[in-house]
Design a protein around this nucleic acid. Structure first.
Lengths: 341, 341
DNA sequence: GTAGATATTTTACGCGCGTAAATTTTTTGT
DNA sequence: ACAAAAAATTTACGCGCGTAAAATATCTAC
């Protein structure tokens, strides 16, 4: 402990015995100073609990250590989980992450981008809203700030794209369903929020054709990000009107499946792979909640770790000056077999 | 649109025709300048898309417009939802909210507080981790920064506390369960993460006594924030060993209840209020997901709007200089009747 | 229309730190 | 041990804005 509080870097450099420019260099990158110097500074930090004023630091630096993490909807545990993962990686790499949610609103997404711009971030990890996003605003932003797009791709935008391999997702789980029972129909939103849904539908159609089955797509109405409710209402409608042509339903995503399961419950339709079950339901995403539905949901899960690792590493490389051409990395999913299908 | 980019407030004051100190005053508080002046400035903002450098702004201001929002675990949709609500209120009130999660880790909670301190926030809305929190660190932080505690109370800490009335929650739903069937037993974690759980247990015991029934508490093992899994495992154990003395189970919170429902499903125990159902299960919290369990979960819900409004308003008042003694505000919950009980 | 109140302008300084250039010190390789 | 390389120091300036004080302009009320 110390007697008097250190007010600025000047005073700190005095008590540490190191000149201010060197101290400044240390805080910019601890590895950039000699080991003995580093030790002295760190001893002084320990003793006086000094931290430089981040506002003054960032004011003159062309590039800060700030990193923005933007997701479409933080109340969706899937995004919350991947954001948490990314946040940790940023901290470990010495950056200062700040979390933002667009709250499902394109206008808010633009506002977030504006706020972010004023933070002079070294880079941004952005999962766009998708279809509803203001394409022009996104492009302008990516021109100004090194931005890595994840989860939902917008072609050729930003530094690169990292996400899941939706085609593999759907092909793989469709294959599984075909091999273990009736071929599935496909349950989706008519106007999905992001392009992943389109890829999944296409992959379903292709897979069914490949496997020699007739595809059937049930598209339900509903706007916005309340997927469970859309799935529930659409499920009720489909069940009442016998729109499901088979006893196996592959949902475009887990949240839709969760809503459908609730509809099934409410209509007394038993779900599962047992002999006394009426239908099988499968999802896609590996949503954190999918383990706890009744029955637990069979799904194909994002590789959260791999996606976030690739995304973060790619951004850090770009920040460090490694210039590489735009590319799209798509991570394979892993089938999670549970009772629902 | 303009021809050249405005680089700083000096240049902006030139094109707007207003002196820089007045422009500075405007950005600090638009209401503090004359209406005609405000109009001129706003016209210039519109035309040149100027935004002051936030780092330079915050460097010299004793108090910024930053507000920190800290929750224990952002991957929990309950906290995500309340955080979203608070964030909106801060924006509407002209503040710049920044969202933080302690990720269930006391050490990380302290780090978040340190980060927050360096942002010189005008105020902080803090939902502490609870039992695991570093009490001393919290106190020190509250001494330095105007902090309003919400969700989970730490007595007499910060400016005030705003949260739900856990006693009313449990009393009310216990009453409901007693009036509509067998009196409930109480399903909880042995070592809960926050003090709300203790209040709920006490309220359950009191209510049962008041209503003339014998209380029965089932406490299950489990550490950390994976409540669903704790509820599921604890549920399996309790079901296998016939530890539930009644056909009605009141869970300490919804996430525990969700896990218990999964356990019931896995053990072929039918849940609901129908005549063919073996047990009734109720939760507490009004968790965003509770609508979509099977059966949909009867619960007593937080008044998200009221809690966040009270919390935000109380903080803003304190920031504006209204000094009022520490007090605790507890908002009543509303019973949400669904099929599980 | 005039005094008084209120708002704006002018002037000037400082915040805490980044950063560049020239100089001095320390380290490294042989 | 010595020259070359690397690191640290000294010196000095600037970033963009907050803010204080004094002078001036504008508004309000009667």
């Amino acid at each position: 402990m110390s007697m008097k509080k250190i007010r600025n870097m000047e005073e700190f450099s005095a008590v540490s015995g190191i000149s201010r420019p060197t101290v400044s260099k240390y805080f910019n990158d601890p590895e950039s100073v000699r080991k003995t110097t580093r030790a002295k500074i760190e001893k002084a930090i320990e003793a006086h609990d000094y931290r430089p004023n981040i506002f003054a630091m960032n004011q003159n630096r062309k590039l800060t250590k700030n990193v923005g993490i933007v997701v479409p909807l933080l109340t969706d545990p899937y995004f919350a989980e991947i954001a948490r993962n990314l946040e940790q990686r940023c901290i470990d790499a010495g950056y200062r992450p700040t979390l933002f949610s667009a709250h499902g609103d394109p206008a808010f997404e633009v506002e977030v981008l504006d706020t972010l711009r004023s933070m002079k971030p070294a880079g941004v990890l952005l999962a766009p809203l998708g279809r509803a996003s203001d394409r022009v605003a996104l492009e302008k932003f990516c021109d100004d700030v090194p931005t890595l797009i994840f989860d939902s791709s917008v072609d050729e935008l930003g530094l690169a794209f990292v996400g899941s391999d939706n085609v593999q997702f759907t092909t793989h789980i469709t294959d599984y369903l075909c091999r273990t029972g009736e071929a599935p129909c496909f349950f989706e939103m008519k106007t999905p929020a992001n392009p992943n849904a389109h890829r999944r539908r296409q992959a379903y159609l292709s897979a069914m054709e490949t496997f020699g089955h007739t595809p059937q797509v049930i598209s339900v109405d509903g706007e916005g990000w309340g997927f469970e409710e859309i799935g529930r209402l659409g499920g009720h409608d489909a069940l009442a009107n016998h729109r499901f042509g088979t006893n196996t339903i592959l949902c475009s995503n887990d949240r839709l499946a969760i809503g459908l399961l609730t509809a099934c419950y409410e209509c007394n339709v038993t779900v599962g792979r047992g002999p006394d079950c009426a239908i099988r339901v499968a999802g896609q995403d590996g949503h954190p909640h999918s383990r706890y539905t009744c029955p637990p949901l069979t799904t194909i899960s994002h590789d959260y770790d791999a996606v976030s690792k690739h995304a973060a590493d790619a951004l850090f490389e770009a920040i460090d000056g490694t210039i590489s051409p735009w590319k799209s990395t798509r991570i394979q999913g892993k089938l999670v077999l549970r009772d629902s299908a």
